[in-house]
């Protein structure tokens, strides 16, 4: 690990200013992904700003009947929140399908959104990776790509976003709240928060340098049956090959977002009109532009079958 200086921030804007001021500075909250990457020298911050003291760790009701989740609310606390369990079950389920008990106790809401891909070539510093070192190439294309993206990928990158939580938040139309160094705030719809790789896979989100996530807000509950189904190589504590977050209404309509298939949580609103017609029709719309590799073409079938199972479960 490279040496770094360390400070504790006492306000969100001050934290943002500290990162904007110092080249190579980064925020640290739970640290469960950042420290892993620092040990491997994939992340090499020269300065860390500890944001854990910023009191962004509460879940509060919003005036329009939704929830405002502080950036520092831990994954365990969010999954266990009675309002989330009752009204946003898909989010609770997605959180509980991710990582381990120890990691969920540390990992934060904002940090979960910002976690980096687990593409094996991103982790292997002896290999080229456009995400780790822009312009160096992509060893995953033509390499071992079983876990990697089937849709929305580019010639520069076929990495997936590893989060379960973000997939549920995409289905729930969450909004990411941020603050800049000058104190200005903005709200970024989750659909626009994560980016597709294009030819700049190292730029993963809509955040500007120094911009700090302060909260994630959920609109008022939409009802329906909430299901999160994660398919993985072992029964627990593994990243998704494919996951489906669904909110299904009584008339068979609803929302579907996918994990494990793209560089961001994958949702195609137009495909949801097909939900009453079943998984095959919805999957055709979701994965219309899919470009799988030889190794991961199985994910197309797996999405359809997983979605069929989810819709059957929701029907009861």
């Amino acid at each position: 690990m490279r040496p770094f200086t360390y400070e504790r921030a006492d306000s969100p804007a001050a934290a943002a200013a500290a990162v904007e001021r110092r080249p190579g500075a980064k925020f640290i909250a739970g640290g469960t992904n950042l420290l892993d990457l620092m040990k491997l020298e994939i992340e090499t911050p020269a300065h860390l700003i500890d944001v854990n003291g910023l009191k962004l760790d509460t879940v509060e009701a919003t005036p329009d009947g939704g929830l405002r989740i502080g950036a520092l609310v831990r994954n365990t606390a969010l999954a266990a929140d009675p309002r989330v369990r009752r009204d946003y079950g898909v989010l609770s389920r997605a959180l509980l399908a991710g990582a381990s008990g120890q990691l969920r106790n540390k990992a934060t809401t904002a940090g979960n959104l910002l976690q980096r891909t687990r593409c094996p070539y991103f982790y292997d510093t002896a290999q080229p990776c456009n995400k780790r070192q822009p312009g160096s190439g992509c060893a995953a294309i033509g390499g071992y790509s079983r876990q990697l993206a089937v849709v929305g990928s580019s010639d520069a990158c076929i990495a997936t976003h590893p989060s379960d939580m973000a997939v549920a938040m995409r289905a729930l139309d969450a909004t990411v709240e941020t603050v800049r160094a000058d104190g200005t705030t903005r709200s970024i719809p989750i659909a626009e928060f994560h980016r597709l790789p294009g030819d700049t896979p190292h730029i993963e989100t809509a955040l500007m340098p120094g911009e700090l996530i302060t909260a994630v807000t959920l609109p008022k509950p939409v009802g329906g049956t909430h299901v999160y189904r994660k398919v993985r190589d072992r029964a627990s504590y593994a990243f998704a090959l494919v996951s489906v977050a669904a909110v299904v209404q009584r008339d068979g309509g609803g929302r579907v977002a996918l994990g494990g298939v793209a560089h961001k949580p994958w949702r195609v609103e137009a495909a949801e009109a097909e939900m009453p017609r079943g998984a095959k029709a919805v999957t055709a719309g979701l994965l219309a532009d899919a470009k799988p590799t030889h190794d991961n073409a199985f994910k197309l079938t797996l999405v359809e079958r997983t979605l069929a199972s989810v819709l059957a479960e929701a029907k009861g």
Partner: peptide, 19 residues
């Protein structure tokens, strides 16, 4: 022939820091 690991090229190299 491989590129070196990403180092945050603009980040200054530091000596160990005690806290």
């Amino acid at each position: 022939a491989m590129p070196p690991p990403a180092t945050g090229a603009d980040a200054p190299s530091l000596s160990p820091v005690l806290s």
